[in-house]
């Protein structure tokens, strides 16, 4: 898949895939900007779907099929559903949410720009000389390549991540349990409701 640069195609020779890539990228960026600027909470979540979907399409264009579908499955299928669930639970209104603005937009912009700059710089620096041949990628290998590189070269970060997630899971359970301890179910109304005896 990833050839080292034996022959460089011209950096600015636009092929169909490259143009599509750029256009989809622009659309994704637009969707992302709308996500953070819209005043309607649920619309923000839905624009996030568009942005995440756009990224999935970018993965597809880079022949990383497996990653693309996982992106859709995890982010669109689960994370956004979770987000929407939370929004519905908090009764997100239809129309503008007056308190949806944390008044930090300049700080946020600075952080976003810094993060984007760092990422672009790191990625460009790391993959400067590799070239993905999008025309000869056979699908079968994509999943295999991903799997083997994940479990051969990146096993440690992978495991560390899973431990992190496990810790988060346990933490969530502990937190929700503790709440049940602090607020015992009201004993038929005779004792003080605030648990002074604890």
């Amino acid at each position: 898949m990833i050839h080292s640069a034996t022959h460089h195609p011209g950096f600015l020779s636009p092929t169909g895939v490259e143009i599509t890539f750029l256009l989809v990228g622009l659309a994704t960026l637009g969707a992302a900007v709308v996500t953070v600027t819209t005043r309607q909470l649920v619309h923000a979540a839905l624009w996030l779907v568009v942005a995440l979907g756009g990224i999935a399409v970018e993965y597809l264009l880079l022949t990383a099929e497996f990653i693309a579908w996982v992106q859709v499955l995890i982010y669109v299928g689960s994370v956004v559903v979770l987000l929407l669930f939370g929004l519905m639970l908090t009764k997100a209104p239809i129309g503008h949410s007056p308190d949806a603005d944390s008044e930090n937009r300049w700080v946020a912009l600075a952080v976003a720009l810094a993060a984007a700059g760092t990422l672009v710089w790191v990625v460009a620096d790391a993959f400067r000389s590799t070239w993905i041949d999008v025309h000869h990628g056979t699908g079968q290998s994509a999943t295999k390549v991903t799997g083997s590189s994940l479990f051969r070269f990146w096993v440690l970060p992978f495991e560390a991540l899973s431990v992190l997630l496990l810790a988060a899971l346990v933490g969530a359970i502990v937190l929700s349990r503790r709440r049940a301890d602090v607020l015992p179910p009201a004993p038929d109304g005779s004792t003080a409701p605030h648990g002074k005896d604890r």
Binding site: W69, V70, L73
Partner: peptide, 13 residues
Amino acid sequence: DAGLFFVLAVMGV
């Protein structure tokens, strides 16, 4: 190629 994941991902949408 990754048909199984494609199917599950799209159904989730």
